[in-house]
């Protein structure tokens, strides 16, 4: 089965639509959401409604720190993110907020683990920025492959049976077989706010039978997404960064 995995959509309707269309064209049969549906972007209602609809059709999702922040005020964030969260909170209905609040922190499926930040303590929202960070997550789970997001920069780590680590920055559209002899941590790029210098939306495909992961990039209408941020009076910086992918 071909899975399409989306992380960090951040209420970017244009990027999310483009990725859904791309995944459909490439034959994806099932959708996995790794959290952060909202925050930063100008279309939280549409994004959450679309996710609810897709989940009703068989998709699965975990919760991200921004999803949690709109439902409980305890998360501390930088001022731009905080401004977006407060605005988002006012836009979402009670039902939409409940949907986000009730998402699980982790999900396991066969030999795969889905989590927004990393596996060692999902509720602490730690970033996987380095090989030691990846090792900490891999040691914490027996899963063959862990899929996570949160940092908005695609990466692929592995740990061998003798606990040797490898790190890799994937090339878009080149499938990589996740060999069974080691554990893998696939860090996805962001659908709605890429930060690796490439403004194109990022998601991944995973073929559960061939065990091949393909990191995908999809160009989308950045102008329209940026316009939605400005129209809604959100910080300009959140619109500007979409053009450069930083």
């Amino acid at each position: 089965m071909l899975l399409a995995i989306f992380s960090d959509i951040h209420a970017n309707r244009q990027a999310f639509s483009a990725c859904l269309e791309s995944a459909r064209t490439r034959g994806a049969r099932r959708i996995i959401f790794l959290g952060d549906f909202v925050g930063y972007g100008g279309d939280p209602e549409w994004t959450v409604d679309t996710a609810i609809r897709l989940i009703a059709d068989g998709a699965v999702a975990v919760r991200g720190n921004h999803d949690q922040a709109v439902t409980s005020a305890s998360e501390s964030m930088n001022p731009d993110a905080q401004a977006a969260i407060e605005w988002t909170r006012g836009r979402l209905s009670a039902a939409q907020r409940r949907f986000l609040a009730e998402l699980p922190l982790t999900l396991e499926e066969d030999d795969r683990l889905y989590v927004h930040s990393e596996a060692s303590s999902p509720q602490r929202w730690r970033y996987v920025q380095s090989t030691p960070d990846a090792a900490r997550s891999l040691i914490a789970t027996p899963a063959h492959v862990t899929f996570c997001g949160h940092i908005h920069r695609p990466a692929l780590y592995s740990m061998s049976a003798t606990a040797k680590m490898t790190s890799f920055v994937p090339t878009a559209h080149v499938p990589i077989q996740l060999l069974r002899g080691r554990q893998w941590l696939a860090v996805l790029g962001s659908v709605g706010q890429p930060r690796d210098g490439d403004p194109a939306a990022a998601y991944a495909l995973y073929d559960t039978s061939s065990r091949e992961i393909t990191y995908c990039r999809v160009p989308y209408d950045v102008d329209a997404a940026a316009a939605r941020i400005r129209e809604n009076g959100l910080p300009d910086r959140l619109a500007d960064r979409l053009f450069v992918g930083r």
């Binding site: 090989t131 592995s158 061998s160 040797k164 490898t166």
Partner: peptide, 11 residues
């Protein structure tokens, strides 16, 4: 392989 993880990198 420049487009695949290098498993020997830290081995």
């Amino acid at each position: 392989h420049t487009q695949l993880p290098d498993l020997l990198q830290e081995e």
